[in-house]
Design a protein around this nucleic acid. Structure first.
Lengths: 338, 338
DNA sequence: ATGAAAGCGCTAACAA
DNA sequence: TTGTTAGCGCTTTCAT
């Protein structure tokens, strides 16, 4: 293993103090042009690069953002994570990833582990938070933002799409197309996305004095979703919905599979299907699913902006709840016109 | 922000030295039961947790693994990353993620950035390496392993599926089913996966004295793959292949879309399609794609084992190239029996 | 604008 | 087994 080059060595070679070297590599520090030149030359010659960890220790800021994530099988997330990671990198932060899914099961433990890294901020994607965790973050002074989840709590920002509005759009659309026996397949009921989408949807139905014709729960999980679809649709024509809204695309695609491949129903002739997210496969011809788009670009932008702002100007920061409107993308799993 | 609890404070409360505290939190250090008890009690009372960064500084080992990744739109990766991250977490390591895709374009820069974090090891997933990088890793004494890529170079381990054998299986199978005009759609030719799969495939054809009937390049990218499929199949029946092997599922699914939705061909009656990876959507009824499975579980296990071994016992470590056999999963995009 | 000096919170010899 | 003493490589007052 080759010797690690330290600032001190650079300083010696350049004939300056070690603090000078530090300053040269600290954006916005006060150094003369000559000094900067000398130091950079020496650094280059030696192949010097500042040690991020040492810098973190001394300065108290690690430029590491913890990302807690689950559900990578929901294809909304890979894309979002990629964008998030890129956006953060551009701002000089890096992402320490924590899978919440199969690990210990206990998110609280995961969060403790993360904090051990003296992270500057925390993004929770697809994870519900206990108030304990939020408390811990606040106590530790770690800015946190919820991505694609909302939680009624002091002190945490959240960035979501406008799930209520989205759900409402779906109801209005289905009603407008003349569907009358309308079903809903729910996700995990602990998730705000699920709750808000359903609430908006029911609100839309209620506005037209309609009730849900059928409801099942898929819990965001494949097997349960298949079962839910069977329970709802393995019935005579007049006893099953003529349209169903599924809480997200991940589940809606499975529902489509059951309807077509297993039950031999035609979509949208026998039943219309609408999802939520607009994940890439929803746009593939084999599915071509009508859905509400989540604008992951905007969601990521807001997430990063919020987080960075809170990190860099903590005083007077007011947590925000951002809900981004997304369009209904009408494709062929619903009937067009009247 | 609440005061950070340090080992020193714990030490004072427990009436012991600070090193004692350190030892209690260092697995395998020599401490008496009484000492451990006292210290843990004090630590608990104070809510003490060791600062990972400080530990890294002092010990020279960060327990951070850098993960360089691209192509998250290939759904083989999200799953693999999730497993990798989990496996590493179980061993007390954590993953610092770097998107290679849209960033600077220059992997070398990314790697430098990563190294600034004093990572203990490096996993390159879906990324080709320059010899410069490998040199840097070795110079810095950072163990590295290639995941799902191979590179003929000293000093880097690589874990892949047995792509040559897999390609060969596909050829043997297609030939055995009686297909005669056989096409291939290539991925990015810089990728070893692409090269090995094609080589194995051609080897199989050659063994039966057959040549490729047609070849196009999709470069692992959607648009190019669509174009490749059109170029190969938008032709009279006798001028197009009756079977095509596509370098990975990600592309094969797009090929299927073109064949069916755009060109109105029947699969497998008009043309058979085989992919590689067995990503989840390949198993969805709407595609039901014949493909070669990559056993991501095994690949991850080997990756972690290799990396950890090299980190923890560097002397005498011999880099290895592991190629894991994967089965051909026969589904309905190829004709069965004879 | 630059240098000197004091840590950041921990681990790792070395003594005792 | 435990305590003492140096650092790890950097940032950051505080002087100059």
């Amino acid at each position: 293993m080759v010797v690690k080059v330290t600032a001190l060595q650079v300083a010696e070679r350049a004939g300056v103090s070690q603090s000078a070297v530090s300053r040269v590599f600290t954006p916005g520090a006060s150094v003369s042009k000559r000094m900067a030149h000398k130091v950079r030359a020496a650094a280059k010659a030696l192949g010097y690069r500042p040690n991020v960890l040492a810098r973190a220790m001394a300065s108290g800021r690690s430029r590491i953002i913890g990302l807690v994530v689950a559900y990578l099988d929901n294809y909304f997330y890979p894309e979002a994570i990629e964008k998030l990671s890129n956006a953060l990198q551009e701002r000089g932060y890096h992402v320490l990833m924590f899978m919440a899914s199969k690990t210990s099961g206990n998110i609280d433990d995961v969060v403790e582990e993360i904090m051990d890294y003296q992270i500057d901020g925390l993004v929770f994607a697809s994870v519900a938070l206990s108030s304990t965790i939020v408390g811990r973050c606040q106590a530790a002074g770690v800015p946190a933002v919820l991505f694609n989840r909302r939680q009624d709590m002091e002190g945490v920002s959240s960035i979501t799409s406008d799930n209520f509005a989205g759900g409402r759009k779906v109801a209005d659309f289905l009603l407008g197309q003349g569907y009358s026996r309308i079903g809903y397949i729910a996700g995990w009921e602990g998730a705000s996305t699920q709750r808000d989408r359903e609430a908006g949807f029911l609100d839309g139905l209620a506005a037209s004095r309609r009730n849900l014709f059928a409801r099942e729960v898929g819990n965001f999980r494949k097997e349960e979703t298949l079962a839910a679809a069977r329970a709802m649709f393995d019935k005579p024509a007049d006893q099953r919905p003529d349209a169903v809204f599924v809480a997200n695309d991940h589940m809606a695609l499975f529902v489509l599979d059951v309807l077509r491949a297993e039950l031999g129903l035609r979509v949208p002739e026998d039943v219309a299907v609408v999802g939520y997210d607009d994940v890439p496969p929803a746009g593939w011809p084999a599915y071509d699913l009508t859905t509400v788009r989540q604008r992951s670009n905007l969601m990521v932008d807001h997430t990063v902006a919020t987080l960075v702002e809170q990190i860099e100007r903590p005083d007077g920061f007011v947590p925000r709840e951002v809900a981004i409107d997304g369009p209904l993308i009408i494709r062929s799993t619903t009937r067009q016109g009247r």
